[in-house]
Amino acid sequence: MASSRSGRAVPYLLLLPAGLAIVAVVLVPLLVSLYSSFTAYNMTHPATLYRWIGFRNYERLFANSDFWWALGRTVVFLMVALNLEMVLGLGVALLVSRVTRGQRLLRTIIMFPMMFSPVLVGFQFNFLLNDNVGLIDNLLLQLGVIHQPIAWLVGTWTANLSILAAEVWMSTSVFAILLLAGLFAMPRDPLEAARVDGCNAWQTFRYITLPYLAPFITIAMTIRSLDVGRAYDMVRIMTNGGPAGRTELLWTLMARVGFDNAQMGAANAMAYVSIILSITFSVYFYRRLLASRRFLGEIA
């Protein structure tokens, strides 16, 4: 009896170290940060971690239009960036999959942008888009396309599009590589059957290739939706959310409040409101993943 009980405990004992590690590195920080969002915690005054202020951080947040604008802008930025990267990445992957010579070299070249650190990408685009000494404006002026420089990083539309362009340039290759792997993993039989049945290229892509790629697209979207936060460094360098809050995203706002201003309690309150955004995206993509796997018959 005793030995049978100890036998049942073995799996739990074996899982215990992993469980403890998860508690230590995930659960405890989450609970501490949740607690601190109800305090006046200022990093330069550690004692403030114990000054309980109830829902004041949250009340201020809900009344703060800057925060809601940043949240809305972030949602739009995420949706536009992800879809653009997906479409462009899919296009690149389809083109590369058809290349018969030098494909390895092409794959390596495609990966170049993802090797740059976001900070470096920010500096590059900042320099390219500078309205006085930047390459793009000077080129356009020399060619006579424009007669006055364009302040790319100042106007609401141009600044947000510039950041979007930098993000898309940096991360499209992630989609391209993941979708290329999906294309290589596709069975050839359905494609050949479609050709025999007289399907044209669009029909083959729409009804064969795309459904097979759907799980890869969804996984790539899920990873990237969480990963677009890496764009923080890039936005920080290019505009730091400005001018006048025109390009403010959640990450720039939270980092400024939490680290520059040392108001970690208020920043954690922002983080807990915005975590709803991450959960929403994750749940949505997870459902899409299940649906596409069900479509392919991988699960019942």
Partner: peptide
């Protein structure tokens, strides 16, 4: 002033002046 000055910090300013413009 260049319209982009609203986003400039010290390095941008220095580079602009050094450009002669």
């Amino acid at each position: 002033v260049p319209a982009g000055t609203i986003n400039y910090l010290w390095d941008d300013i220095g580079q602009n002046f050094a450009s002669g413009s």
